[in-house]
């Protein structure tokens, strides 16, 4: 007897929901970004679990592409944070309302 694949999917769902909650609740933009990473990670876990279940390598390959996109997103996002912090001296997402009409 081995571990049911549903356990891995349940863990993935829990981690994804915690990441989504972090994006919705936290005010610090950097922590919002880290919650995004948590959601990427949860999706990767589901990919790897299904790759193992169906014994198809494609799931594991997709994980590398997700990691690449996450790295690019983090680089651009953190550059944005630095630019916003220089202009407004705060990275509180509540205060980023300059586009509001």
């Amino acid at each position: 007897m081995a571990v049911p694949v549903a356990y891995y999917l349940a863990l993935s769902a829990v981690l994804f929901v915690m990441g989504a909650l972090g994006v919705l609740v936290r005010r610090n933009a950097i922590v919002v970004f880290m919650s995004l990473e948590l959601m990427f990670n949860a999706a990767n876990l589901a990919f790897v679990a299904f790759a193992r279940y169906y014994l198809q390598l494609d799931g594991q390959i997709i994980v590398f592409f997700v990691m690449t996109v996450a790295a690019a997103e983090v680089a651009v996002g953190l550059a944005l944070m630095v630019a916003i912090f220089r202009a407004r001296h705060s990275i509180d997402v509540d205060q980023m309302s300059i586009l509001k009409g």
Binding site: A6, L9, A10, A13, V17, R52
Partner: peptide, 23 residues
């Protein structure tokens, strides 16, 4: 909303896919 999302995801992943064991 997070609780709703968790219940939905849990329903689809646990109830709709029961007992798929990794061999």
């Amino acid at each position: 909303l997070a609780v709703v999302l968790l219940v939905e995801a849990g329903y689809f992943m646990l109830v709709k896919q029961p007992g798929l064991f990794l061999n």
